[in-house]
Design a protein around this nucleic acid. Structure first.
Lengths: 151, 151
DNA sequence: CCTCCTTTGACTATTTCTGACCTTTGACTA
DNA sequence: TAGTCAAAGGTCAGAAATAGTCAAAGGAGG
């Protein structure tokens, strides 16, 4: 596996896991140094992978002594969180939404990586067969397959 | 005999067989290079031969570090009958068709009674939410949920 | 010669990576 | 206090690296 962005993502998640309270502080410039890339690459990783809907919060400050802080939102009771998330699935689900839902369910331990992969693949294939309302179909399929797993 | 498409198909199946978990990752461009063809030829092979109803799932990603992942389901021969029946599921499934399919899968021992019930319930619920193309949705949902069970 | 499957390539879509330029913060200094 | 400056981090557009789509051309068997 492999892009630089992936590696940086893994690194940050590792640090989060090791941290006491799901919260770490980074130096953008230093991190860029470690991975031998331009600093804005760090921003890229943060904005594409550590989004709110994936359960992360980013704060930062510029200037001398500046920092970037990454917080992982506490997931309380797993089942409750899953139920909440499940309810949250609306009538339409974009491709990006799907990705985020699957990632979150995976993080919650509701889905295995394999299951998430299978769901993603099936949804891609099934939505490829229709012209209209792909977003609605995605929502239906996601709900249906989650039900099968949760049953 | 062999068209190029056939060769590529054989190659991918070989790789799948050699893989640990019926899952491989390909680079479209590289594969096209190996077979000295245009990249879209790979898509042709995948869409014509590695379809869901033949027991394959395709996932892919574009951009830097992009890939095409091929997963095989229905690994053993025990669900050959299921595969055959699965194949028969067309683009549309009426409510009566659904009953019949579920019954048959139940008889074949592919689905437990509980699972069949759950599927029926979910399909009813989901089709209740849309106005048009209920038959198409039924087909998609049935396929999707069967995949989850078979996996 | 008709039809269906295969092959091709021009055009499109998406993701990652980079660099030039911009903004904010705080310390120092006049 | 106000001004200046260095040290962060932020933005954005574009290049590079992949993959997807679609229609037209090619070819083999009836």
């Amino acid at each position: 596996m492999g892009t630089l962005a992936d590696l940086i993502e893994i690194y940050i998640k590792q640090r989060l896991k090791q941290s006491q309270d799901q919260e770490i502080e980074l130096s953008r410039a230093q991190l860029a140094e470690v991975f031998r890339c331009v600093p804005s690459q760090i921003n890229y990783v943060l904005t594409t992978r550590f989004t709110l809907d994936r359960g992360f919060i980013i704060e930062s400050r510029r200037g001398g002594g500046g920092y970037i802080r990454v917080l992982q939102i506490q997931t309380d009771d797993t089942d409750k969180a899953a139920a909440k998330l499940f309810k949250q699935i609306g009538t339409t689900v974009s491709e990006r939404d799907l990705e985020n839902y699957l990632l979150t369910f995976y993080d919650l331990g509701i889905l295995t990586g394999k299951q998430a992969q299978v769901i993603k693949g099936i949804v891609q294939q099934e939505t490829g067969l229709v012209e209209q309302d792909k977003d609605k179909l995605r929502a239906s399929l996601l709900r249906a397959m989650l039900c099968m797993v949760l049953k």
